[in-house]
């Protein structure tokens, strides 16, 4: 079957024999965009978290056919070294990653949380960020999430001033 969607703003059309193929593998192996990770295949660890229409989704358990016509964003679409997303900027400032494998999933989950809740409390973070990090970077991640909220707010303030 033919499926069309936008990946990081670029229109993509793929042909897949089985529309139930997890979107994760379409992104990684068909479109060769590797930042989104495979961890468990059962939506249990969050390493594969992407944004579908701005919502955090665990792409290992998201059938590709549901992507039809939708805006899909991955870590590659969030920001880059020249123009990092506030969450990425905060992650750099706090030197969060260790092995780094789970980090794109956490960064995407955090970006989705901040889009809805620009100033999350510790409890909001506890309830919404449920990915697994084996290196145990949670302590720095919490600091980075609060820092990202600050960065987002100061960026918004500046934008308002400019208006």
């Amino acid at each position: 079957m033919k499926i069309s969607f936008f990946l990081n703003g670029i229109s993509e059309t793929i042909v897949v024999a089985d529309g139930n193929t997890p979107l994760l593998w379409i992104i990684r192996d068909v479109l060769n965009v590797k930042g989104t990770k495979f961890g468990c295949g059962k939506a249990a660890c969050g390493a594969c978290t992407i944004h579908v229409e701005g919502e955090a989704v665990r792409s290992c358990s998201y059938p590709a056919k549901f992507a039809e016509g939708k805006q899909i964003n991955t870590i590659e679409g969030l920001g880059n070294e020249e123009n990092p997303h506030p969450v990425q900027q905060a992650w750099i400032e706090e030197i969060v990653p260790q092995c780094g494998y789970c980090q794109p999933g956490f960064i995407m989950a955090t970006a989705a949380l901040l889009a809805k809740n620009p100033n999350p409390t510790d409890e909001d973070i506890d309830q919404n960020i449920s990915n697994v990090c084996r290196c145990g970077t949670y302590f720095r991640m919490r600091k980075a999430i609060h820092r990202a909220a600050e960065l987002t707010q100061s960026a918004n303030t500046k934008t308002e001033e400019n208006v």
Partner: peptide, 20 residues
């Protein structure tokens, strides 16, 4: 700062699973 910081924050394909 870690020398692999950018690669790990921007999702570069550096892991065994990413090999092609």
């Amino acid at each position: 700062p870690r020398v692999d910081l950018a690669a790990k924050v921007f999702g570069h394909p550096i892991f065994g699973m990413d090999a092609e």
